[in-house]
Structures are given as structure tokens and as C-alpha cells.
Amino acid sequence: MNIYEEHGWKMEPSRNGFGRALADLAERHPELVVIGADLTESTRASYFSEKFPDRFFNAGIAEQNGVGMAAGFALAGKIAVFSTYGVFAAGRAYDQIRTTVCYSNLNVKIGGAHGGISVGPDGATHQALEEIAAMRVLPRMTLLVPADAEETYKATVAAIEEIEGPVYIRFGRAPVPTITDKDTPFEVGRARLVKDGKDLTIIACGAMVAESILAAEILEKDGISAQILDLHTIKPIDEDAIVKAAQETGAILTVEEHQIHGGMGSAVAEVVVRTNPVPMEFVGVQDRFGESGQPEELLRAFGLDYQSIAQKAKKLLKRKK
């Protein structure tokens, strides 16, 4: 039994939430189509394609064309979802997402699977660690990084039912703790308060929210009270929540399964320096490529596990006035 299960959390890959949402949404949205790029089962687009084979189209291993096809479907009035691994979507097809989708403001949703180091054994080529930076600088893009399968379900529903225009949803491969349930509120652009605290705020996204909850428990034992925000929407960013966190706790630690440069932490810092400067630290991948290994050992090796987060938090508190 691992630490997560000891905690009583059910483990499930967030990609399952993406697939389940697509299958459910298809029932009520006849205009919903999904375009895949040969990774149908792995991205969980298969949950949709098995139920609605007539509305699933494979682009083959050709992501640039896949994004273009999705754009064409959107131009024809459909809601088009394109799904593949994050490195191939946000990296390989970057200009297609920028110019064809965002510049034209088309109703295309990108399901970016295999985000983060926790992809595991496949190694660096398949571990997307740069998409948050790449996607959040695109005008008109909404960028969602949900914390677990349940939240990924809600993010996918919101992307399709609430947002007219480009959305990128980042989710992961490995089973991660399910820390939310059906009734947990989810609002695009509104950070979710996971836990109250007064000494610092940990702002996390994706599977790092659960890791931060464990970190906060360690800190609690040392008498440190950490507030936790689940920043599932990187763009548009919840400025109010960040300003409030800075004002109330006076220190901010960001935690993400992504390069420290340009990612969620940078997005938070942009708000903090402009509004209410407080000491900050960044937990993330330190300007290096990933490698093969089991998700948990990689999180430890790259300083993304709960113990590393707790250590970083203590280091940060020394700088707090």
C-alpha cells in the first residue's frame, strides 16, 4: 500500500476523466467530434470512439494535420476535440495551434495527455514538461490543468459547454489520487481552496495538488499552517485568489509537474510581483529533461514529491518577514 492509499485516496489516471467526459458529452452534443492521432486508447478518446465511431476520426501519426482537421471541423460548425500526447500536440503542432486555431479563434479543444514527469518509463521524449509555458502565452487560449480524474471530467465538460474558443486541457498517464468528488465545485478561472492555512500558500496544479496536501500534513506536524490552492485554470489566471493568498499568508510556494521556467509558477509570479510582492519559491523540474523510471521514484528524483515540497516550504518561510 502506498502513501496515497494509506491516506484513503482512490487512485485513477486523470486521463480517464477526459475519456468519460467525452463519452457523456457526445450524448447531448451531436456536433461533438474527436480527432485522434493513433493514441486513441492511451488518451482515453477510446471511451468516445467505441460509443460513437461515426464521430471519431483518426489523423494517423500526423499531429499538424490533426490540428488542422480539427480546425476545419470547427469551421464547419462542429465542436472539435483533438487529442494526443502533450509533447506532440503543444510541441509538434505549435504553429498550427497558434495560427490556425487561436488566431482564427476556432472552437477547438486540445486534450494534452501524458503531461508531466509521472508519465514514467517512456522517458523524456514522452514526458511533456513544457506545454504550460507554450500554451499559456497564446492569445485566446484557455489552459486547464485539473488535479485528478474527477476534476479532469469537469474541466472537459466546461471546455466544451462553457467556452467558445480554443482550450488546452493537460492531464496525466499514471494513476493519481482522486482528491475531489462529484460535488466539489469547479469553476473555470477560479482557483479552488483545498485547505485553509496562515503561514504560507501552496499553489499547485495537476497531480501536485495531492502531493501538496501530503506536504501540508508534514508541515502541520512542525507547527506550520499551509493553505493550499488548486490552480486548475492557468489561463485566465485567478488574480484575486493569488492576491488574497499573498496578502493573507505572506509567502507563496508553487508546485507543478513542469519546467520551472515559464510554467504555472511563473504565471503566479507575474501576478504576485505586480500586485503584492511576497517571497516565493518554485517546485518544478529544474531546467532539465525527464528520464525513465516509475512515477513515484521520478517525483522523488526530480524534487516533486511531498517531502521535497515540505522542505521547499520551510526554506521559503525563512525568507518570510
Binding site: I35, F57, Q64, N65, V67, G68, M69, A70, A71, G72, F73, A74, L75, A76, A80, Q96, T100
Partner: peptide
């Protein structure tokens, strides 16, 4: 590619 998607 856009044309292909629309035609489909």
C-alpha cells in the same frame, strides 16, 4: 488540413 477537416 483545414479544408480536409471541413470537407469531412
Amino acid at each position: 488540413s483545414i479544408a480536409v477537416g471541413a470537407a469531412m
